[in-house]
């Protein structure tokens, strides 16, 4: 009865609104019985960062980079009208009032629904992000692993 078709998604953006759209589609697809793979690359990795500071040995450049990038779902800006974070604050308070599920809850739900979340190791190198700084339960891989999953998918998105 249940078709084992897959859905894959490249999450390139680290914007709050785009991240929410990604996770809504991912959890929705999982609820429809699909095997979902989300491949996080470049700015998308920021969504998976732990909120707290994790002490790891890094080069000066990597430290600077890490400092400038948002740590986790609560710190992301929105893709339009962010106004230095004010727009994101406004959007979050509006969503709370309207009882819209938060990005953090969506991520937990995705993990609960066995959505496969893969962090791109090349992007991690570029941005100087280590495994210790990312949330638990992730896979670590590169383009071949993503393409293999995409090959078997009926839906493939780049966000």
């Amino acid at each position: 009865m249940e078709q084992q078709n897959k859905s894959t998604m490249v999450v390139f953006s680290g914007d709050l609104d785009k991240a929410m759209a990604s996770f809504i589609i991912a959890t929705g697809a999982a609820a429809m019985g699909k095997q979902v793979t989300m491949f996080f690359t470049f700015w998308g990795l920021n969504i998976l960062r732990k909120e707290e500071y994790v002490k790891v040995e890094k080069s000066f450049m990597d430290k600077m980079f890490a400092k400038m990038l948002p740590r986790g779902p609560e710190k992301l800006g929105i893709s339009k009208m962010n106004m230095g974070g004010l727009g994101a604050k406004f959007m979050k308070s509006t969503m709370k009032k309207k009882n819209i599920v938060t990005l953090k809850e969506l991520i937990e739900m995705a993990q609960d629904l066995d959505v496969k979340m893969v962090a791109c190791t090349m992007s991690m190198d570029v941005m100087g992000i280590t495994k210790e700084e990312l949330i638990d339960g992730l896979d670590y891989a590169g383009v071949a692993s993503y393409l293999a999953d995409a090959d078997e998918s009926k839906i493939n998105l780049f966000i």
Binding site: I24, T27, G28, A31, M32, G33, N99, V101, L113
Partner: peptide, 13 residues
Amino acid sequence: KGLSCPMPIVKTK
């Protein structure tokens, strides 16, 4: 009731 997309289908599943 009161829940928005995608919660109704996730809970239904």
